[in-house]
Nucleic acid binder design. Sequence first.
DNA 1: AGCACGCCGACT
DNA 2: GTCGGCGTGCTC
Length: 741
Amino acid sequence: MSEQTSLLLTSDNPLYFFEIAINRPLFQSFTYAFKKDIPMGSRVIVTVGNSTEVGIVIEKHLITPEVDFSINPIDEVIDDTPTVNSEVIEIAKWTSQYFFQPIGELLFTFLPNYLKQAKPLNSLYTEGYLRTNHPQTESLLKNAKKQQEAFNLLNENAPTSKSTLLAQGIKSNTLLELCKKGLIEKTLIPPTPSYTSESNAPLKLNQEQTNAVQAVVEHKDQFGCFLLEGITGSGKTEVYLHICKSFLSVGQQVLLLVPEIGLTSQLAERLESQLNTPVITLHSNLANKERASRWLQTQQSQPMVIIGTRSAVACPLPNLGCIILDEEHDSSFKQQEGIRYHSRSVAIKRAQLRGLPVVLGSATPSLETLTNTYQQRFQHLRLTKRATGARLPKTQIQDASTLNPDQIFTADTLSTIKATLASKQQVLVFINRRGFAPTLQCNQCHWVAECEQCDVALTLHQSTNSMDCHHCEAKHPIPKRCPKCNSPYLSPLGYGTERIEHELIQTFPDFPIIRMDRDSTQNKGSLEKIRNQLLEDSPCILVGTQMVAKGHNFPNLTLTVVLNCDNGLYSQDFRAKETLLQNLIQVGGRSGRADKPGQVIIQTSFVDHPLLKFFEQQDYQGFAKEELTHRKNIGLPPYHHQAAIRMQSLMDNKAFTQLMSLEQALKTYKTNHPGDNVEISLTMPAAIERKSNWYRYLIMLSSPDRKQLHHYLNVAHHFLIQTPRTRKLKWVIDVDPLDTW
DNA sequence: AGCACGCCGACT
DNA sequence: GTCGGCGTGCTC
């Protein structure tokens, strides 16, 4: 609609007017003028105040805008081709409005860092490429045999550099003529390397998998949401593969979104070797230029598969046919800091706007997604059979309430670990806490080492010999004596990965103990090293946090011991149980692949907790039904939609006072609209009230009616815009919040 | 977010 | 007298 030219004014000096989005926390775009038309999505340089900024054309004016300010000109158009297409702009606008995030900042989070700078795209490449850009040639090239030949050659190939064409006997003049006729053009986008693959053997699918693939493929060019629920080992990846294959075969592109795991390469290799198509992976480990260059390749319309994390949801892909979101329950699809948006919502919206199918895959779907299937908004595709033939893990709950403080494992657990190692198999000890011990306490006066800038205890780290705050960057030396009573008797309280590792070395000196957490995998390649060690299949014990559960696959790992999951059972966060069960099932799925049955032991002080019963029976659906009933009864998501208004200040009362007046304003508004069904909470402190010396508070809004909720958020937003963010006060609206802050 | 403007304290 | 502290407000 807005692709139309915005020719304005009269005669000799036509001017064109545009809305430009810039990378600043502003909720509007700015109006600028230019002497020539500029395509939507182009990068430009504009003067804002006293500085120049990179901006993106997000709208064209069809008539001269009537404004009460003078419109400045655009300084420069950076590239000769647009960076994003209209679809990306539309998605960015929707996301900006739905999540109450500034349009410019939001659009820029979708771009690779390299493109946020004012450097023109051609600085990425030393040489341009030529490609065809016109579908019909017959009439135009009837009498130009050489040109037709050159055109055909280019038409059959990806963008080709001039030197390659000259080497193939094409004359420079011929190309020049074709350019003049507008049949071919120069592009800065390099050709996607095409992979040759001999292993194109068709994959065998079982009936359930076939049905799933078919359901999605039948939805080609129509909007539809699918939940692909498949237990571990049921072959979700094979289904993805076949879906990709099908869309690729009709010349379309597939976007495959994955959580933030460093192991997308396995998936990419698998896709690459089985589909004869370029697979482009976009993740944060790539160097700036490399990432930008790969991202630019997604502007091409040839069939390809893009594997990417969160922000890849908005890469251009002119020929997109299907979106797949793997591990859809994973919270890393929601950006929790800075610009807050949820990739799943964006993916669904994009599919809706374009009319395509979107597939959400998980063994343990989020309760939001499950509810959508119950309410028939999503189609539920189930994979209930383990394609690999492996059995479900044996589960066992061990009572840890009778253990001494210095005992980690129950006698039963210990003997099971011993037996597993003796039969030359591997053991995983899962504890979701890094460091040596979560606290250091004085035996005499019970003083606890706390962070000076946050309301949390410091974690003791043995490897760095320091006490670290896990909420800010603070590191402190370990005191020799209690700073309060001068007692020399300070002891570590509780367990983290380091301490478990330490204890296991004493108990099992003959076996390698491998620790895998954020600290032990900081160096590049260390994760790969750990993986390779595990893949050697010799007996060992892996001690790890959350990160072991994600995407790793160790065939000889047959026993998993889960420690310290009790806080998930009785947490303030209403989603803690859901997340815990998802983690437990995912960790359990790590053990017992292939022909070896797996075993999972959970040590807990609450052996009768109902959640553990659901785990024992591997009954996620049963848990979901019960939990959903509970959530419905007390008005929690997914039945009520939530939004948090968060405010923080460096002075302890500023944010609180300001939020209180917003709370008042909202409640007054509600009193004047008695029919509204929106709940407004009191102004309350965040779960951790002080972090890095910022005092943090929030108001929670909730409503069964999303429209009404958004209406109230608009009211709140108007209020907030008038209270400017200063260096000492920050605020943000968090739609569909996932954390307690 | 940047950046300028503007209004109060300690200094060559 | 003025240099600079940061509180406030604006950016087409």
